[in-house]
Each structure stands twice: as structure tokens, then as C-alpha cells.
Design a protein around this nucleic acid. Structure first.
Length: 833
RNA sequence: GCCCAGGUGGCGGAACUGGUAGACGCACAGGACUUAAAAUCCUGCGACUUCGGUCAUGCGGGUUCGAUUCCCGCCCUGGGCACCA
């Protein structure tokens, strides 16, 4: 027998699988389908990393098992290749992004094939392929036509280092998520997608899917739905007798706020507006201390978001002297402040402050000595704010007195919504019920080069027009100077002959949009395209979509469970609404979503180039083979938790596979007819337990214990004088999804002509997983005192008799009479004396 | 601050629905083979012990015949959100 030599057998089998196109899936069959999905990789210059392998191996195991269970399995792969990392990499290396992408995809392809994943390579594509992004642009056109895409002036987050606008989601702790660079506010015309219109559905439909609970929570928190009311506070017109009239340039007579606590309206003793609030500009001449206010506003602007949102800092603010707000419930005049603890980006950018029942307002009121009016009894407002909503009773609140806060909220909203005469505004309601989301509309423009051109044309006469569908794709021109500009225009703007075009409506002169789409655009819908990747007539053939979609199981990293998941769910819902995907597919794109834990470097620290602790899979494939790497990544620890790489343990897995290989020496000479049942019953039990455990564990992604169970079986098999081909075959089949090359080679060695993958996934016999005897545990007063081997069928009386005769037990009873005996069948007998 | 995980030997981690804590692997120690080493195989491996046992699953209580598992109160670690009105 030759030695286990993965370096030889792995390339051999990869070649055979590739040539036979064994994983290329039939279009539509009568078989039940299974669509397993992993996040397609971003082909960076660094090559494949251990995290890709962890996710891909897990789904590979599941898909291989499904195939053996008789499913028609789609396990596709592609590349998410547009975007900043490649562009920046290309700039650094002084090459074109096209070149970098091509090279990186080649590397990734080679690495992925070397890992033995059962991908359907026949369906592979890159988001940068023209016949793919044609449809990415087509989706944008549909969104525009549906009124969900709009170009508008937005205060955006501008990364000064990437020279690019960022979505709110891409700003983390006040800095650029990607490069950590400084983020400033900049007003720019931007394309936005109105994801907020789908906010409710994105929350509600989570009930219909099987996601990890924490993923659902993340989605819900991100959308951040709050229910409450808006309330208009009139601004009192004349304060300062020296000034005859307050100039109000925009006829703004109200300060409108959003509150989740309309019940506390009688306790509103001052107002606060964000530094960016238009009220300040509008009442410039009415604000007596305008200079002071202006200075505060300027200071606030200079602060980064990080500084402004630092919870530990003391709240600051300046009163707008000369104007007052009138609390509409009691007509009291209350002061207005500007303070940077109120954010322009949420609600109306202004709040009514109820210091008695809100911690932040309380702190502010204490500092500036403002009135604190208790309107809910139950706390001690001389000491701290009482923010409870479940308990307490309304006081000092006229028509709300005596109610519970929850009831008061409803009553107050009713009161606010009643139309009534209102000074300066005629006949309308003071406020109304309002739902507010933290989720913002999604800024979809990027002022860079390496992305899908936004397929829009601007005509002076006709306004924004979509590029006609027959002219799609708008091909990204191959330009030499693709460096970003400091002014924040896309490099495409420099290519005049490309920009200049004709208006699709009037035929007159027009200009192309020069911004490109963000990275998310291509990854929003790639899984749909896998079901029909070559279609040049439509995004997807409804028949094919109907057969394959939704995705049955989607696994990926925790880092993509908020943004990518939310965005792609939104796009799916839109495509569902316009019938671009058939109704039969359902309202959610992914039936099940799981996430793997990150692999950390040795010692539990994050892997990074700067630390120099990045594990390169290639080295391990070279040294141990892909099978060892696969099994190790599954065995290293619980799949969903982060885990540190441990070089020494890789060796342990290599030993395991070698022992499986060497087990061949114990094979009975070609005696495959031997019936399993006739063998050693203990071993038979263990074999069936292993079939059950490995099968069940794969479904629950408990790969570590599945491998452990196979090791237990191997240990037992090794103890035998000789083993039957039947036993060995079953063992290899169980191992196949984990170590496919090894399993295939051993299968062939056993004399099979067909691939092991044609075998059925084994089923266990429920009668055989039970052992004939078990170890009965005897406890005296809760302590284990004896273990006796007894037959499974033993009755309770027999157990009692047996135990009471047992010397050791008798000794522990110290001739006392047992008070109580508890018998747990098949487990233990507990005696209390 | 809020939400979600989690805390078990020297290490990664097992443990069904309250029923033998430490499976499996790593590391380590001893032995076999070898001129020797590597590899491989065998044995041992939570702590203490007067060798009868006793104590042990972050800490302190509780429920129970019995708690890693359930309840109450703390401490710590990781992740997410964060002046969201």
C-alpha cells in the first residue's frame, strides 16, 4: 500500500471532476431542488483567506450531502469585483482596475478549485462582466421608473481619503469604514434609493424566514422603527420691543418636533434644535444673541461625528434669545436652545425637552437651570429623570391626569390630530401620529471609476431620463486617467466624448451621469442571476427563477448580516413587486441565513497584514493537502463562534486522515458481501450512532462534533483485528463531504468504477443505535457511588434488587433505610437515605 | 447606557429535554520501534489526598434526590447599536 499522498491524489481528482463537469447542475428536473449559497468573494489582491474556506467548506458539506440525498443541487460561485479596494490597489500598482480584477479572479479561481469545492463553475460570472451589469443597470432603470430612485441634494458623508461619498451605513464611529479616514459633511447631488418605503416590510417579513435570531435583531435595530407623533410648537413673534418685527424669511411659524412620548407634552419646558436647523437662519434678525449662536453652530460643525456623539461629554448649548416657542397644550412660552446633542439627521432635527422624564433633557436642564415639571408620578424628579412608560400615573396634565402613560400617549395623539383653530396657521391639527425610522434613504452614487455607470442622461429640456433599455449596458469606458478628483467629481466626467450624448426623449444635446454605483449594486441580486446566468433577453427566465428560488440556505460572515442582507432583501422585494421575479418565489430571497465565526490569528488576535499573522491557505494545501485544511476548519471549534487558528492542531487532523488511509491494511480480503449486522454488535451500534450523529450535526452546522464522532468510530475500528469492506465503505461515505479527495481515492481503491458521489447518503437503523447494555449509575444522596453494567431491557424492580445487593452500595447506605428511590430508565438510580 | 452571545483542565472544546462533567483533538510525560532522530504505535494526563475519599464548570445565594443546564443578585470577555428624541 502506498502512503497517503494528498499532493498527488487531490489534483488528480480535481481534474477528473472538472473534466466530467460533475457539479454542473441540470437546468430543471423532477428532483427536489436545493440552492445552497455562500457570499461570492471579493477578488482582492491578497488571495483567498481562511474565512472564505470556512464558509465555503461548510456549505460544500451541506450541498454534497444533499446531492447524495437525491436533491438537484445548485451550489454556484462568482465574483464581486467592482469597487474601491481594487481601484485603490490598481492606483498603487499603477495598473488598470480591469487588469487587477482579471488577475485576481484567476488567482481566486485556482485557489477555490484547489480546495475541492463542488461549485458549478459553468455558471460563474463577475459583477464586472458587461452582460451581468447590463442587468444591474436595468434594475436601476426600473427603480427610477417606479419613483424609487431620485437625484437630490444631500448632505453626505465625504471620506477625505477615499474621495468618495459614503452611505450612512459606511461611516463607522465617525470614520470611513474602509480606510478609517476622516469623514466630513459635504452637500452634493446624489442618487438615492428610497429604501425607507420598504422599511415596514423589511421588518415584518422577517417572520417568514429562518435566520439566526441575532441576525433578525440586527436587521430590526438597523431599521430602527419608533412610533410616536409630530407636534408643532408656534414661535412667538415679538420678544424684543426694540425690534419692530421678526424677520422670518421662510414664513416658518412653527417648530415641529418628533416625539415618542406625546404623553409628556405638559412637561415640555424648553425646546432644542440641532445646529444645522433652518430655524436659526430663518430667524436671524429675531435672535438677539445671533453672534453667540452663530459661533456655537460653527464650533459644532467643526466637530467630527465622533466628538459630537461622545456620550461622556457634557452637554452644551446656547439659548436663542429673542424668540420663544409656545407649548400648544398649555400656551406657555418656553425657551429655545441650540445644542449639538440633537442631531439633524433624525426626526425633524428639533426636540421638545421634557427634563422630568428624559435623561438627556434632565442633564441639560440641570446645567442651564431650566424648569422641571413632573407629569408622571412614580419617580423622584428632584434626583433623576423618570423615563418609565409601563408604570406611573399622569399628573399636572389636565385631561390626561390619572391615566397611565401608555393610555395617555393614545389620548394625546387623538387630541393633537383634532383640527382646531391655531394662531397663525388657520384650521389644522397641531400634530399627528408619526412613525420614524433610523434607516435613511440609500445614497447610491459614488464619484469614482471602478463601478457600474448609472444609466441616466440629463437633458436641459427634459430633465433626467433613463437610458433606453435597448442601449444597455452603458459600458464603463476604458480610460487611462481614472484617478479621483479633489472636487468630488467622478473621473468619468473628464472624458467629454463619453459624457456628451443625446436626449432619449427630444434627441437634443444631453449629458450622461458620470457617477457610478456603489459596491453593493452588483451583490444585491447576484444569486438570482445564478439561476440563469447566460440570459441576454431578460434578467432571469421566470421558469428558472421559479424552480430555483428562493435560496434555501445562505451562509456568510457576520459582517454582512446588516447591510448586504438588508439591501438585497430590499431589491428582491422591489423585483417581486414589479414581477421581475415570479410571485411563486415569495417575498423573501433567502429562506435560511446562517453566519460563521471569524477565524482569528494564533493567540486569538485578528489576522492582519500589519500584524503579519495572516494564514495563507496555499501553504497548508501544499504541506497537508486541501482535505486536511477542510477538516481542520470544520473541527477547530463551533462553527458560529470566532476561533483562533492553531497550527499544531492542523497536524492532528492530518494524522486523522492518515489513519483513515492506513485502515485499508485491516480490510478483509475483498469480502464486501459480509452483512453488517452479523458483525460485532458493539461496533454496529457505534456505526449507526455515527451515521445519525454526522447526519444530524451537518444539518445543525455542528461540524466539530461530527468530525469528533468520526474520530471515535475510527478509534474503535482501529482496535479490530480486521474490518469488513462494508464498514469501511460506510465510514468513507460519511467522510466524503468533509474530505472529498481522500474519500474518492479510497473508493476507487476498493474497486469501484463510479464516483463515490453517486452513492446514497446512508441511513441509520433506529433499532441498532441502541446498545444492548448500559452503565447504570447509582447515586446515594446525590453522589455517584457505583456503576453497574446492565442489559437495556432491565425492569425497575430488577434494578432495585440488583442495586440493594451491591456491596458498595450497601456500604454507602450504612444500614439506613432508603427514604426514596428515583429511577431514570436507561440512566440511573438515585437513592435518598 | 441598551441588546445579543459567552465564561468548563495547560490549550481548542464535548455534555440530549435537569441525570456519569471533561467526549474528540492539541500539548505534555513515560514506554516500544530505531545506531540515533523524525514519523508511527502503546500508556498516562482537572486539583488535593491520610488512597477511604474530598473539592471542582466566572463569583454569591436559591429550587431539586440530583444543577455546566432552571431562578435571583453580581463580576468579567467578545459582538452589535448608541445623545434616535
Amino acid at each position: 500500500m502506498e502512503k497517503y499522498n494528498p499532493q498527488e491524489i487531490e489534483p488528480k481528482w480535481q481534474k477528473i471532476w472538472d473534466e466530467q463537469k460533475i457539479f454542473e447542475v441540470a437546468e430543471i428536473t423532477d428532483k427536489k431542488k436545493f440552492f445552497g449559497l455562500i457570499e461570492f468573494p471579493y477578488p482582492s489582491g491578497d488571495g483567498l483567506h481562511t474565512g472564505h474556506l470556512r464558509s465555503n467548506t461548510a456549505m460544500d458539506i451541506i450541498c454534497r450531502k444533499r446531492r447524495m440525498q437525491g436533491y438537484n443541487v445548485l451550489y454556484p460561485i462568482g465574483f464581486d469585483a467592482f469597487g474601491l479596494p481594487t481601484e485603490n490597489y490598481a492606483i498603487k500598482k499603477k495598473i488598470k482596475p480591469q487588469e487587477a480584477t482579471e488577475k485576481n479572479i484567476a488567482t481566486f479561481t485556482k485557489q477555490l478549485k484547489e480546495a475541492g469545492f463542488s461549485f458549478d463553475w459553468g455558471r460563474s460570472f463577475s459583477t464586472t462582466d458587461e452582460d451581468y451589469y447590463k442587468w444591474t443597470q436595468w434594475i436601476f432603470v426600473q427603480m427610477f421608473k417606479a419613483g424609487l430612485a431620485e437625484k437630490k441634494k444631500e448632505t453626505i458623508n465625504w471620506c477625505t481619503s477615499c474621495k468618495i461619498g459614503l452611505a450612512n451605513e459606511e461611516v463607522v464611529n465617525g470614520v470611513c469604514e474602509r480606510c478609517g479616514g476622516e469623514v466630513i459633511k459635504k452637500v452634493k447631488e446624489q442618487w438615492v434609493l428610497k429604501i425607507t418605503k420598504y422599511a415596514d416590510r423589511l421588518i415584518e417579513d422577517l417572520d417568514k424566514v429562518d435566520y439566526l435570531e441575532r441576525i433578525k435583531m440586527q436587521q430590526i435595530n438597523w431599521i430602527g422603527k419608533s412610533e410616536g407623533a409630530t407636534v408643532k410648537f408656534p414661535i412667538s413673534k415679538i420678544q424684543d420691543t426694540n425690534k419692530s418685527q421678526i424677520t422670518n424669511t421662510n414664513n416658518q411659524y412653527y417648530l415641529e418636533v418628533f416625539t415618542t412620548r406625546p404623553d409628556t407634552l405638559f412637561g415640555a419646558t424648553f425646546m432644542v434644535v440641532a445646529p444645522e436647523h433652518s430655524l436659526i437662519q430663518n430667524y436671524e434678525s429675531g435672535i438677539m444673541n445671533y453672534g453667540e449662536v452663530k459661533e456655537y453652530v460653527e464650533q459644532a460643525k467643526k466637530k467630527s461625528d465622533l466628538e459630537r456623539t461622545d456620550l461622556n461629554k457634557e452637554k452644551t448649548g446656547v439659548e436663542l434669545k429673542g424668540i420663544k416657542a409656545i407649548n400648544p397644550v398649555n400656551a406657555k412660552e418656553i425657551p429655545i436652545f441650540v445644542a449639538d446633542y440633537v442631531m439633524m439627521g433624525y426626526g425633524t432635527g428639533a426636540i421638545m425637552a421634557v427634563p422630568a422624564h428624559d435623561e438627556r433633557d434632565y442633564e441639560f436642564a440641570k446645567k442651564y437651570n431650566l424648569e422641571i415639571v413632573e407629569v408622571i408620578k412614580g419617580g423622584d424628579v428632584s434626583k433623576e429623570a423618570f423615563a418609565e412608560i409601563e408604570s406611573g400615573e399622569m399628573v399636572n396634565s389636565e385631561f390626561l391626569n390619572g391615566l397611565k402613560p401608555n393610555e395617555a400617549i393614545e389620548k394625546m395623539i387623538e387630541w393633537l390630530e383634532e383640527p382646531r383653530h391655531h394662531e397663525g396657521a388657520g384650521h389644522e391639527s397641531i400634530g399627528k401620529r408619526q412613525i420614524q425610522y433610523k434607516l435613511h434613504d440609500w445614497i447610491f452614487s459614488r464619484q469614482r471609476y471602478w463601478g457600474e455607470p448609472i444609466p441616466m442622461v440629463y437633458c436641459e429640456k427634459c430633465g433626467w431620463q433613463t437610458v433606453p433599455e435597448k442601449d444597455l449596458p452603458v459600458v464603463l469606458p476604458n480610460i487611462d486617467d481614472y484617478l479621483p478628483t479633489d472636487e468630488g467629481d467622478s473621473p468619468l466626467a473628464k472624458k467629454e466624448e463619453w459624457v456628451k450624448t443625446n436626449c432619449p426623449v427630444c434627441g437634443g444635446e444631453a449629458k450622461r451621469e458620470t457617477d457610478v454605483m456603489p459596491n453593493w449594486a452588483g451583490s444585491n441580486w447576484y444569486f438570482i442571476r445564478y439561476t440563469d446566468p447566460k440570459n441576454d433577453k431578460m434578467m432571469v427566465d421566470p421558469k428558472k427563477a421559479k424552480y430555483w428560488l428562493p435560496v434555501d440556505w445562505y451562509n456568510g460572515g457576520m459582517e454582512h448580516t446588516t447591510l448586504h442582507l438588508l439591501y438585497s432583501r430590499f431589491v428582491w422585494k422591489f423585483l417581486y413587486d414589479i414581477c421581475a421575479v415570479p410571485k411563486e418565489c415569495g417575498v423573501e430571497p433567502y429562506a435560511k441565513r446562517t453566519a460563521h465565526g471569524m477565524i482569528l490569528g494564533e493567540g486569538g488576535v485578528k489576522m492582519s497584514k500589519s500584524r503579519g499573522n495572516v494564514i495563507n491557505p496555499d501553504e497548508y494545501v501544499k504541506k497537508y493537502g486541501a482535505d486536511t485544511l477542510r477538516v481542520y476548519e470544520m473541527f477547530m471549534g463551533p462553527f458560529d463562534l470566532p476561533i483562533a487558528w492553531e497550527d499544531k492542531s492542523v497536524n492532528g487532523v492530518y494524522r486523522f486522515l492518515n489513519r483513515v488511509w492506513n485502515l485499508q491494511t485491516k480490510l478483509k480480503s475483498q469480502n464486501s458481501k459480509v452483512k453488517i449486522e452479523s458483525q460485532n454488535p458493539k461496533l454496529t451500534t457505534l456505526l449507526h450512532q455515527t451515521i445519525k450523529k454526522v447526519g444530524d450535526d451537518i444539518e445543525e452546522m455542528k461540524f466539530n462534533t461530527a468530525v469528533a464522532q468520526m474520530m471515535i468510530l475510527l478509534n474503535e475500528l482501529e482496535k479490530q483485528e480486521e474490518i469488513s469492506v462494508a464498514y469501511y465503505s460506510l465510514f468513507i461515505i460519511l467522510l466524503l463531504p468533509f474530505a472529498p479527495h481522500l474519500a474518492e481515492e479510497l473508493w476507487q481503491t476498493l474497486g469501484h468504477k463510479e464516483s463515490i458521489m453517486k452513492e446514497k447518503w446512508p441511513e441509520y437503523d433506529p433499532n441498532l443505535i441502541k446498545a444492548e447494555k448500559f452503565e447504570l449509575v447509582v447515586q446515594v444522596n446525590g453522589k455517584v457511588r457505583e456503576r453497574i453494567l446492565v442489559p437495556v431491557q432491565i425492569s425497575e424492580t430488577e434494578v432495585r434488587d440488583l442495586v440493594m445487593k451491591n456491596e458498595k452500595v450497601v456500604k454507602w447506605l450504612e444500614s439506613k433505610e432508603p427514604k426514596k428511590m428515583i429511577y431514570i430508565k436507561g440512566k440511573l438510580l438515585s437513592i435518598v437515605v
